[in-house]
Design a protein around this nucleic acid. Structure first.
Lengths: 210, 210
DNA sequence: GCGCGGCCTAAGCGCTTGCTCAGCTTCGGG
DNA sequence: CCCGAAGCTGAGCAAGCGCTTAGGCCGCGC
């Protein structure tokens, strides 16, 4: 559906200055939170005057929305690629968790904004983002349902388990620090293993490996 | 160490007005976040004028700190009670997860403030809170270490798994809604089962139940 | 019965905020 | 050579912020 490779940053945003504002916004929002960040701070980080922000974005909230939408689309792309890939449900679930957790670790500043600043969005923008989030939930739940149908997984509460798996990965953005001892790759591997054990049917191949 | 029963709210805070301000602060901070909440809003919810807040708390940040400290102490108490209880590591871990997840669901507004507004604390207050959080991590990790030593658990990365278990429970505060279909009790049960599978040694009693 | 400390309010101070606006520069097309 | 659009700035406005201050009320000790 879309190439999952890490394109440099914000890819193809219109003028280069708008791109700089987006990355400055991500940094500032991730550090201090949306409400504690001033437009002067964002503009300063992007190397321009406060007024310049309003040439590229109508409001501060729209800047947040653009960040949030791009981030959510990227996150959905990651889950979608795993869901639509080849292989048994166990393999696809492992791929999804590995990549999703890894993304939240590697891009933890973006992910922080994406996951924890939803409440600052306006009503219409919020609705658009919620639709993307429902997609993500639906895709992940689909993989688990496949595994249950095939007898590969034994899961009593599928929606609850899907929610727990997503929750586990999302929360990485809260605590992950680049200075920590774990690399994003190692974390993805750890989490894929933990989730594998969570859903595996007793006697299944995945039960013991970690 | 301390009775874990749910005392009404803020228990024994000095004058009743300070207590009202604390609960008003929790509600407001949980809804909008610390920085988006005004002292006028907090005072209004508590039924008093903005100036009254400063009779009971020196600053808005101190009000947050008091909320955060009480919340963290309660959270640590829950984990400590489970860690120090009788029984095998598997039972103690299940008790810890069940109670910890349940608390984050039932008191999700308090938990939201406790878990997501740390960055708004001043330096000294932050350090005090971090000490409490390290306690919580240490207690939970201790249970898992016990289980590994006894051969009851098979866990390759103990600190990573402990982190994941706490993370899973903490994130409940982010998404849990009282209007949702799951009760705090059901959620605690679900999570205790999921975590049990995450750590259980193959062939152990817990492996299949859910 | 009077003073005094605890609790509270009305008013408002100094400052920062999101955002606007008039005007400057730069640059490609006719 | 000029024009207009695009990109940007310095200055600043109205509103809202955290917090202070002067003063009023109430109840208890003496």
């Amino acid at each position: 559906m879309q190439d999952v490779q890490e394109t440099a940053a914000w890819g193809d945003v219109e003028p280069e200055a708008a791109q700089r504002l987006l990355t400055a916004g991500v940094e500032a929002f991730a550090e201090r939170g949306y409400h504690a960040t001033t437009t002067r701070d964002i503009a300063g980080r992007a190397g321009m005057s406060p007024a310049a922000l309003y040439i590229h974005f109508r409001t501060k909230e729209e800047l947040l929305f653009r960040i949030s939408r791009v981030g959510h689309e990227r996150a959905r792309g990651i889950i979608a690629a795993a869901a639509e890939s080849e292989g048994a449900a166990g393999e696809r679930l492992a791929r999804a968790v590995r990549a999703f957790a890894r993304w939240h670790a590697e891009h933890h500043t973006t992910a922080r904004v994406v996951q924890y600043e939803l409440a600052a969005l306006g009503e219409e923008h919020y609705a658009e983002i919620v639709a993307l989030r429902r997609d993500i939930d639906r895709l992940l739940r689909g993989i688990i349902e496949d595994g249950v149908r095939d007898g590969e997984f034994a899961v009593a509460d599928v929606p609850g388990t899907a929610l727990a798996v997503l929750s586990l990965c999302v929360d990485v953005a809260r605590w992950f620090s680049a200075a920590g001892s774990r690399s994003p790759d190692e974390l993805g591997e750890l989490y894929a293993g933990l989730v594998g054990r969570m859903v595996a049917a007793p006697g299944g191949r995945d039960a013991g490996e970690q």
